[in-house]
Design a protein around this nucleic acid. Structure first.
Lengths: 120, 120
DNA sequence: ACAAATGTCAACCATATGGTTGAATGATTA
DNA sequence: TAATCATTCAACCATATGGTTGACATTTGT
């Protein structure tokens, strides 16, 4: 009853939690890439890379189109957006909390008002 | 040579990949909470909750102040911000890519210009 | 028709993760 | 001082993860 879409976020964050996969996404941000091309920069087997790619695919972060014997991968931004939204919520909250704290401090300590730089 | 701070992102995304931990963060967004308070909503042992909290702490997402026999936890927004920044980079990219695609489609198909709703 | 290229699959391994229980630690209260 | 409260620690368990290798399936080029 907590969150119905939590599984999706689970998969997205889980997929993002690995540096190899993040690097693959970074590469895909530059354009479509085949599995082999995605695997090339890393010192892992093709099968290993294939697994990573399947994780990204399962999280919905990439889409794959089979083209003959090569599989072309492309970024699928929707889920990434969902993750960003989740984080954005906390950023917002955190900002307002800092603002509130600052207001409190300003109210409490004396007139001169040192005006620390704002957190933003 | 890829990313020096990747370990930090690993830990943050990994920590966010669990729904229990995300719920704990949501609770902490409402104010400081003791370990017991954080554990209460879930049907897991206190030791289990303690482990989750340690994961959040290790990722730098929360801070803990021991106060007698109770441990008070509070959100630590820095790392969350880092995660958000990482995602924001891709959102930006994705938006420009969608814009480019749309421009292409607009250029290619005829005058009437159906004007699909913009992705944003 | 054959060989090479592109990937996946299955089996396996080591380690990490999420969970448990029971005992231990340290602060508080009676 | 003894009981209780808030938490961690250690050991354990089942499953997931990231990696490997070797065999298999399909395209493609000769």
């Amino acid at each position: 009853m907590v969150e119905h879409f939590s599984d999706a976020l689970d998969a997205v964050f889980q997929a993002l939690a690995d540096p190899t996969r993040r690097a693959m996404l970074a590469e895909l941000a530059r354009g479509e890439r085949s599995v082999g091309e995605l695997a090339a920069p890393f010192e892992i087997s093709l099968a290993g890379a294939s697994k990573h790619i399947k994780v990204l695919e399962a999280a919905g972060l990439i889409r794959r189109t089979v083209n003959g014997r090569t599989h072309l991968c492309a970024l699928e931004p929707g889920p990434m957006h969902a993750g960003a939204e989740w984080l954005r919520h906390y950023e917002h909250f955190w900002n307002t909390r800092l603002d509130a704290l600052e207001a409190l401090l300003d109210a409490e300590d004396a007139p001169p008002r040192p005006r620390r730089p704002r957190a933003r």
